[in-house]
Design a protein around this nucleic acid. Structure first.
Lengths: 223, 223
DNA sequence: CAACCTCCCTAGCACTGTTAGAGGCAATCT
DNA sequence: AGATTGCCTCTAACAGTGCTAGGGAGGTTG
């Protein structure tokens, strides 16, 4: 009341690249991929949409920033702890999947892009370094990194399509009903295992594949 | 000249669901994902865009049809030939990848969707049947199918982002330049193996992962 | 004081997916 | 023969999109 114009709106909450990214991620998480637009984002930030373009070159660039931000939330593998490289790689895979699943709408932006923002590069560097320091040569280190990350990302993206990730149980149930109602004469084997297929065991499946890939790397060690 | 209105334009080349899908796929293959729109597609078909909506409920439904059409081009695994199930599964994986890579723009539609159109279901049925008839129980059969297909699709999608698939060498070269110009002090291990990473050996990497997954299935056999 | 830089604004372009509703055209019914 | 029906394409339009041009307020610097 004393008329201090200080805190009122002195340090005007000016827009900011980081602030935009934060709000965009919130909006995606809350309202989903289809509801996202630059204009809506502007409303969220109490700003008119063209202002965004001062801080961000384009929607596409913003999307790049978003996925790198999400990837940045994935804990990096410990540089050199007691654990074997197998275990560290396995943990990384599960962590990365978990991070992606916690931002399903943002993860949907990933296909078509490469996870090569600053955070993505740092992750790549760490994984490759881990493998090299565990005795793999350059070729196998790059194989390991690429196959592993491609697998994790690819799996997570499709899990999300399945309805996993958000409060998206509705989607999952819908898929279940769809698969359950298929004609058994046309898809006999599929229908026979339908229960297994849509069981909420995607995590098991993911880890099974992840372990197989790591075992594949192990095998090249002895060769 | 004899005034037969028959072949002139009697059986007017009316629009058709299949025709629309065909043209859409052509348009995607030729001009890429970003250039696609219902209006452009209409131009391609020498029709006004609202006409499309008589045959197709929405762009989204059309996209579903497109990916199922692409998947339909993948040869199904032989029902029961001399080959081992490992080899048949491996062939399927490579075939499916090849089909996806040959329609990169359409493949970009896949994330966010499930490959459960008629063709996708038939593929699932065959793969699951193959595994069951090779001695796997329902649970492992569904594991095998899902992990394998998720892997193939995920890998292909990201390969396409890398620039593979189309006459997209430009994109690939750009990625190469980007990775080559990274600061070695910040990403030492990455830069060290950069040559390996962007080498056009994605096929090797893919097959390495594919084989690892199949080996993982083999291991559960003896257990 | 003037010049600048930063940053948000209004206005608007070219485009999108999609719908409402009119109308042409062939086959069918009366 | 004429009327009716259903199929299919059209024109017109709506609400929304990403993005740009260019103006102008407010602080910082010469």
């Amino acid at each position: 009341m004393a008329g201090f114009p200080r805190e009122e709106h002195a340090a005007a909450p000016r827009l900011d690249r980081a602030e935009i990214v934060r709000a965009a991620l919130d909006l995606l998480d809350r309202d989903g991929f289809d509801a996202f637009s630059m204009r809506r984002l502007a409303v969220e930030l109490e700003v008119k949409s063209p202002s965004l373009y001062w801080h961000v070159r384009s929607k596409d660039e913003l999307f790049d920033l978003l996925i790198d931000t999400v990837i940045g939330k994935c804990p990096l593998p410990a540089a050199d702890e007691g654990d074997s490289w197998q275990r560290r790689l396995s943990s990384l895979g599960m962590d990365l999947r978990q991070v992606l699943l916690s931002h399903p709408a943002a993860t949907r932006l990933l296909p078509g892009r490469l996870p090569f923002g600053p955070n993505g590069l740092r992750l790549a560097d760490r994984v490759i370094g881990l493998l090299r320091r565990s005795g793999f040569d350059d070729r196998m280190a790059s194989y390991g990194y690429l196959v592993l990350v491609f697998y994790v990302i690819g799996f997570a993206v499709q899990e999300i399509a399945f309805g996993k990730g958000a409060a998206n149980g509705a989607r999952l149930a819908e898929v279940g009903r769809y698969l359950g109602g298929l004609p058994a004469d046309r898809y006999p084997d599929l229908v026979a295992v339908a229960d297994e297929l849509l069981a909420p065991r995607l995590t098991d499946r993911f880890e099974f594949g992840l372990q197989s890939l790591i075992d594949g790397l192990v095998k090249t060690e002895s060769a």
